[in-house]
C-alpha cells in the first residue's frame, strides 16, 4: 500500500457492516448479507478510534506495522469496507428503530385444556396493529382444528403466522406441509415430536417458489418452559434487530402473550399475569403498570451480555435468567462466556 493516492485515503466500513466490541474480541455484523465476521479488538480500535485518519496517519500511529495491511486487505477482500477520499459522503447507519404498532407480535399458547376464542383474540390483535403471530400447540391437534382456529386470519392484517405443532396421529408431516401450502401467511411451521430432525423448505407445488419452511424436531415441546435458549442458530443478523437492540429488548418489546390458561402476559414464559383473556381485553392488559417494564431492558444494560460481541444480534430472554431477583441478569439458557470467548458444552 505504498500507492501515494491510497496513502491519503480513508478506510470506511460499508454502513451495513456494524462493529460490536466484546470483552476479548469483536464482531462485524453484516446486516445486509446476514453474516458476522469475528475480528480482534485491535482491529476494532483501528476501525473506530482511527476512522478519521488517513492510511498514512494510521501507519504512523502504529509505527508502520505490517499487520495493518493484512487487516485492510482482509476487509476489502471480504467486501466489508473500502477506501475513499470523501469519507464525509458516507454516514454510518442510523440506529433509530420505530414502529407503527402498539403490539408488533403475539404468542398464543394452547394445550388440551385451553378454551381460547381465537376470532376475538385475533380481532383485538389487529386493532393493536399486530403484524406477526405465533401459535404454539403443546398437545395433539388436527389440520382441521388448526384451519378452524386460523379461519378469521384469512382476511386480516397479519403479515406472518408461525405454528409450533405436535406431530402425532392427528397431524403427520404431509398434513403439516399441506397446511403451509394452503395458507400464504404461514411462513414457518415447527413440528415437534417428529420422527426425525431437520429443516425442510416448503415450495409452491410444481415451482421453485418458496412458501416457507418446516422445522422438524425429534423431541417434544410440552410447555412454555422450552423457550429462552440462546444459540447462534437463533442469531438475527438484520437491520431490525441491530437497531431495536440498541434501545429495546429484542424479544419482549412490543410483544404480548396469552398462555394456555388464557393469562395475558408480556410473554407466556413469564410469570406475571395482567388478567385473563376471558375477562380482560389485550388493550386493557397492556395499559397496566408494569406490562411494558421489560420492553426497554436492552443488551447494553444486561450483566455480562453488555460485554458480549453478539449482543446486537442476540434474541435475549428475560423469562429464564441466572438470578430471578435481578431483571438485568444474564439469560440462564446461554452457554457463552464473552470473557473467554467460548461456548460451554456445545
Amino acid at each position: 500500500m505504498t500507492n501515494p493516492k491510497q496513502a491519503q485515503m480513508y478506510f470506511k466500513l460499508f454502513a451495513c457492516c456494524v462493529t460490536v466490541k466484546g470483552a476479548v474480541r469483536s464482531t462485524i455484523c453484516d446486516v445486509q448479507r446476514g453474516e458476522i465476521k469475528l475480528i480482534p479488538n485491535s482491529l476494532y480500535t483501528i476501525l473506530t478510534e482511527h476512522q478519521h485518519q488517513t492510511y498514512s496517519e494510521i501507519q504512523e500511529a502504529y509505527d508502520y506495522d505490517e499487520t495493518l495491511d493484512e487487516y485492510f486487505d482482509f476487509l476489502v477482500e471480504n467486501e466489508l469496507g473500502f477506501w475513499t477520499d470523501t469519507p464525509e459522503f458516507f454516514p454510518p447507519l442510523d440506529m433509530t428503530w420505530q414502529t407503527y404498532s402498539n403490539i408488533n407480535n403475539a404468542i398464543i399458547d394452547i394445550d388440551a385444556a385451553s378454551s381460547h376464542d381465537f376470532k376475538a383474540i385475533f380481532a383485538q390483535l389487529e386493532e393493536l396493529g399486530c403484524d406477526h403471530i405465533q401459535l404454539r400447540y403443546y398437545t395433539d391437534v388436527s389440520k382441521d382444528t388448526l384451519e378452524n382456529h386460523l379461519e378469521s386470519t384469512k382476511r386480516s392484517r397479519f403479515k406472518s403466522i408461525e405454528l409450533v405443532v405436535k406431530h402425532g396421529s392427528l397431524l403427520d408431516i404431509p398434513a403439516a406441509e399441506a397446511l403451509v401450502v394452503s395458507n400464504a401467511r404461514i411462513h414457518k411451521l415447527v413440528l415437534h415430536g417428529a420422527p426425525e430432525s431437520g429443516i425442510r423448505p416448503v415450495m409452491k407445488p410444481g415451482t421453485d417458489f418458496s412458501l416457507g419452511q418446516m422445522i422438524l424436531l425429534s423431541y417434544e415441546i410440552t410447555s412454555a418452559d422450552h423457550c429462552g435458549v440462546i444459540d447462534p442458530f437463533y442469531f438475527s443478523i438484520d437491520t431490525k434487530t441491530m437497531t431495536e437492540s440498541h434501545q429495546f429488548n429484542t424479544c419482549l418489546n412490543k410483544k404480548i402473550g396469552i398462555d394456555a390458561q388464557g393469562e395475558i402476559k408480556n410473554c407466556p414464559s413469564l410469570t406475571e399475569s395482567f388478567g385473563n383473556i376471558a375477562q380482560v381485553s389485550l388493550h386493557q392488559a397492556m395499559l397496566q403498570k408494569d406490562f411494558k417494564k421489560l420492553w426497554e431492558v436492552n443488551k447494553n444494560q444486561v450483566e455480562i451480555c453488555k460485554d458480549c460481541e453478539f449482543r446486537h444480534i442476540c434474541t435475549d430472554c428475560r423469562a429464564f435468567i441466572q438470578n430471578p431477583e435481578n431483571e438485568y441478569s444474564k439469560p440462564s439458557k446461554c452457554n457463552y462466556d464473552p470473557y473467554t470467548a467460548s461456548w460451554a458444552n456445545s
Partner: peptide, 26 residues
C-alpha cells in the same frame, strides 16, 4: 464491485447483493 451488475445494477445478484449504503450528497 460485481461484474454482473457493473453495467446495470438491476441485473441483481441475489446471493451476494450489491452493497447499498446511506449517502450524504454535497
Amino acid at each position: 464491485l460485481d461484474q454482473q451488475t457493473a453495467v446495470d445494477f438491476r441485473v441483481y445478484n441475489m446471493t451476494k447483493p450489491n452493497r447499498t449504503v446511506p449517502y450524504q450528497l454535497p
